[in-house]
Design a protein around this nucleic acid. Structure first.
Length: 587
RNA sequence: GGGGGCGUGGUGUAGAGGCCUAACACAUCGGCCUGUCAAGCCGAAGAUCGCGGGUUCGAAUCCCGUCGCUCCCGCCA
């Protein structure tokens, strides 16, 4: 790290350097003035070193140190000395640098917030001065972690015989999936490029091209509303392999996840290895969610059979009309007020209400205590309900019951502190449905994407019962977050056309929009499949953050703006003329 | 498109109809101080409480609108 300005970084010096003369360069983190003695903590990305300026020993250095303020850039020359009393909180805490020369390299205005302090700052403020925000220890650590994860993944894939290939950023818009970001073409006015939502088609073409094992750390773009875990532009580790089945892809990625975690967050335990595999159907049934958080229990049970002949009209009629009665058991008792608050959660997701039974001091009470009396032993056994526990029940259409109770489960897991934030709970979610019915459009939609292969056992169902067809797809879920998703692809143009037809894409449209892919499949397409990591989310979890903005250097606000650059911004009308564009007045 | 939360000196917060001539901490500026490390002590400056309207004798506080940030639903193959 030695350069014209420094011999060491600010995180480098240790006891063994004592006696050496060194030069450091960095930012003034903090200054402590004691009369004839000034301590300056000099910081760079690598750490913090205490510099001592003694008026008696080095009057010039002392005079400079007396002038400088926070975040000034300084250069310090001096001897490394052992400290009288070390600072165990600091990597360089055993030493200090006795300044012989202090130079002001560049002064700084008083910063708009304290870089040296870890505060919960207003995000607009942080983004406006992102270059200062990134100086803070937390962000420097996150950027470093992100880099190490990228480097690890590249190295691991390289060692497994993959090659990294870049694919175009200016591509063709297709009707499937998210809203595209469009780029007008100057040379072909009135036509548009689209930014890639993922390199999906290109990587499949690369398989036809014989590239065998491809990966790319790929920027992807989707013009949808932003969230804590969603940005317009995000990064995928995009992987595609030829001559593989689902197990090949999952095994490779599982080992990478494990090795990665052990390398970059060695002190965080992985809950279960090998990763458990759970079908989509089971995840919905037990967790009400296609990305279950396995760090805590409280799984759902189905009580439909217990109430099929019940006198309780609400439950009975739910069962009769094909709905579900789902329950979770919570190892706690709640006040009526608390139950009311929890009920609001399930109502927000469509449930009519939240029924509950509490077992307290040998008594059974709660909104439906009277009605569960007949079936109480069976109910308690199924849910493992003991004294001091509360059972929450939602009776509704199956999807509503699972969804709302699943949300309640997550809420309680967090609110009751049942989650160890340190733990890493991976699982593979497998065999999701290939299609889901789109009621608005009166057609089937791909659950994953339209190139996902149907399970071989279900191909015969494509014609008669598309909703029952399982996909050869798999998602990696970590702590309730989808961190990767992939599938085995269709490599047969006939099956592909059949799927397009079900999606409401007629032959002419398929030719226009996917002709290149269908053509390619007629020139010897190898069986292939792959996966894409949601890279930002993965790093977010490893960093212990709850927003991907914390692991992206220059993110957008949830309104899609960048307070630093002022993007998006109007452009001169001459630029629009060149593109043949005209801005319509707002309606 | 919809729902919730927040917006008070540079920063983070307190104040929730009259105790507000707006409090505290950090930062800033001046002074003291030779072993601190979130240094300490003394002092100073700094806010028409996001913006606009309304209610009221009286609004940081209540109401409406608007802007910004944020969380969630929809959306995200």
């Amino acid at each position: 790290m030695q350069t014209a300005y420094r011999t060491h970084t600010c995180g480098q010096l240790r006891r063994e350097h004592v006696g050496q003369t060194v030069t450091l360069a960095g930012w003034v983190h903090r200054r402590r003035e004691h009369g004839g003695l000034i301590f300056v903590d000099v910081r760079d990305r690598h750490g913090l070193t205490q510099v001592v300026c003694d008026q008696a020993a080095a009057p010039e250095a002392y005079a400079r140190a007396a002038e400088i303020g926070s975040e000034w850039v300084v250069q310090v020359e001096g001897a490394v000395a052992a400290r009288f009393e070390g600072n165990p909180d600091l990597a360089t805490g055993e030493i200090e640098v006795r300044a012989a020369v202090v130079r002001v390299v560049n002064a700084s205005k008083v910063p708009p917030f304290e870089v040296a302090r870890d505060l919960n700052l207003d995000e607009a403020q942080r983004l406006r001065y992102r270059y200062l925000d990134l100086r803070r220890e937390r962000m420097a650590r996150n950027m470093d972690l992100r880099h190490r994860v990228t480097a690890f993944v590249r190295q691991a894939l390289n060692e497994h015989g993959f090659i990294e290939i870049e694919t175009p950023i200016l591509t063709r818009s297709t009707p499937e999936g998210a809203r595209d970001f469009l780029v007008p073409s100057r040379l072909n006015p009135g036509t548009f490029y689209a930014l890639p939502q993922s390199p999906q088609q290109m990587k499949q073409l690369l398989m036809v091209a014989g590239m065998d094992r491809y990966y790319q750390v790929a920027r992807c773009f989707r013009d949808e509303d932003l969230r804590a875990d969603r940005q317009f532009e995000f990064t995928q580790v995009d992987i595609e392999m030829s001559f593989v089945d689902e197990d090949d892809v999952m095994a490779l990625n599982e080992q990478m996840f494990i090795d990665l975690c052990r390398a970059v967050v060695p002190d965080r335990p992985i809950r279960q290895v090998p990763f458990p595999r759970m079908t989509y159907a089971e995840a919905m049934r037990r967790y009400g969610n296609d990305k279950p958080d396995l760090r805590f229990g409280m799984t759902m049970e189905d009580l439909g059979d217990l109430f099929a002949t019940s006198d309780f009209a609400v439950f009975r009629s739910t069962v009769d009309s094909g709905g579900a009665i789902k329950a979770i058991c919570v190892p706690r008792l709640f006040s009526r007020k608390e139950v009311g608050e929890l009920e609001e959660i399930v109502k927000a997701f469509g449930a009519g209400g939240l029924a509950w039974v509490a077992f307290e001091n040998g008594e059974t009470r709660g909104s439906v205590a009277k009605w569960v009396a007949d079936v109480e032993p069976a109910l308690r056994e199924r849910l493992g309900a003991a004294d001091g526990h509360t059972v929450f029940i939602v009776a509704a259409a199956r999807k509503v019951a699972e969804d709302s109770l699943g949300r309640l489960r997550l809420h309680l897991g967090e609110a009751l502190g049942l989650i160890d934030p340190h733990e890493l709970a991976f699982l593979w979610l497998i065999a999701p449905p290939l299609f889901e019915w789109n009621d608005d459009e009166q057609r089937w939609d791909s659950v994953h994407h339209p190139f996902t292969a149907p399970h071989p056992d279900d191909v015969s169902l494509l014609a008669g019962d598309p909703g029952a067809v399982r996909a050869m797809a798999y998602d990696a879920v970590l702590n309730g977050v989808e961190v990767a998703g992939g599938s085995i692809r269709i490599h047969d143009s006939a099956v592909q056309q059949h799927v397009f037809a079900l999606l409401g894409i007629d032959e002419a449209q398929a030719r226009t929009e996917f002709g290149h892919l269908l053509d390619a499949f007629q020139y010897g397409a190898p069986p292939h499949g792959g996966i894409a990591w949601g890279f930002d989310r993965t790093v977010m979890i490893l960093a212990g953050e709850s927003s991907i903005r914390e692991v992206i250097a220059f993110p957008k606000t949830v309104a899609g703006t960048d307070p630093l650059t002022g993007a998006p911004a109007p452009v001169p009308s001459a630029n629009l003329d060149l593109l043949g564009l005209k801005v319509a007045p707002r309606t």
